[in-house]
């Protein structure tokens, strides 16, 4: 149990996916203009990321390894992720149209979120078990959500700030992310 908690803390804070490992930066920059958008993106990503890390573990262990085609994992995982995203969208549409209305527009974007493919690959590289993979994916998603929502809150404030002309837009967002990343470096050595 304690191993799982350490795994979660490590994925959320110490090796934060966005600020320390540079995964999932496109949605981090792209959907952080408003807090509502950030929350929607976080919820959709958390769901898909956890599911994807479990399914890709199963595909790798019970399909790719027995067939001795582990080198095809990149292609296999991207297919799994795309299929999962599609499946989630259909499931959501049938069971809860309201949820689909809120989160639906974020789903197609998740296929090209490198954090999802990244978690699947990192799980393989670290030799995680099925349960560990699931929790690592969940922790990664929580870390992503935490940082995305914090960053969206900062950017809403930034819109009102007086920024020198060349730094306006993406530039000041990057520098804000640098300061956040610096703060997260403080968690190094926690686990």
């Amino acid at each position: 149990m304690s191993a799982i908690i350490i795994l979660l803390i490590s994925a959320i804070l110490v090796n934060n996916f966005v600020l320390v490992q540079f995964l999932g930066l496109c949605p981090f920059m792209g959907s952080s203009n408003k807090i509502e958008t950030a929350i929607g993106m976080s919820a959709a990503t958390t769901f898909v990321l956890t599911l994807a890390s479990m399914v890709s573990y199963l595909v790798y262990q019970y399909l790719l390894i027995p067939l001795d085609i582990a080198w095809l994992r990149t292609i296999a995982f991207i297919v799994v992720i795309a299929a999962l995203v599609n499946f989630t969208e259909i499931l959501m549409l049938k069971t809860s149209p309201l949820l689909h209305k809120v989160l639906g527009i974020f789903l197609p974007l998740i296929t090209t979120n490198c954090a999802v493919l990244g978690v699947a690959l990192l799980n393989i590289n670290a030799g995680n078990s099925f349960v560990e993979s699931a929790f690592y994916g969940f922790g990664a998603a929580l870390g992503f959500s935490l940082v995305l929502i914090l960053f969206a809150a900062l950017r809403e404030k930034l819109n009102l700030a007086d920024i020198p002309a060349p730094f306006q837009g993406a530039s000041i967002a990057m520098i804000t992310a640098a300061l956040m990343s610096l703060a997260f470096m403080g968690f190094t050595g926690l686990v």
Binding site: A165, P166, F167, A170, S171, M174, A178, S181, M185
Partner: peptide, 25 residues
């Protein structure tokens, strides 16, 4: 060391974007 650590990447990318804006202007 900061330049090699993750915060350095964000910081210098931000400065690079600002430089491009300046040249364009």
């Amino acid at each position: 060391l900061l330049a090699l650590l993750p915060p350095g990447a964000f910081l210098f990318m931000g400065l690079l974007l600002a430089l491009k804006n300046l040249i364009d202007k």
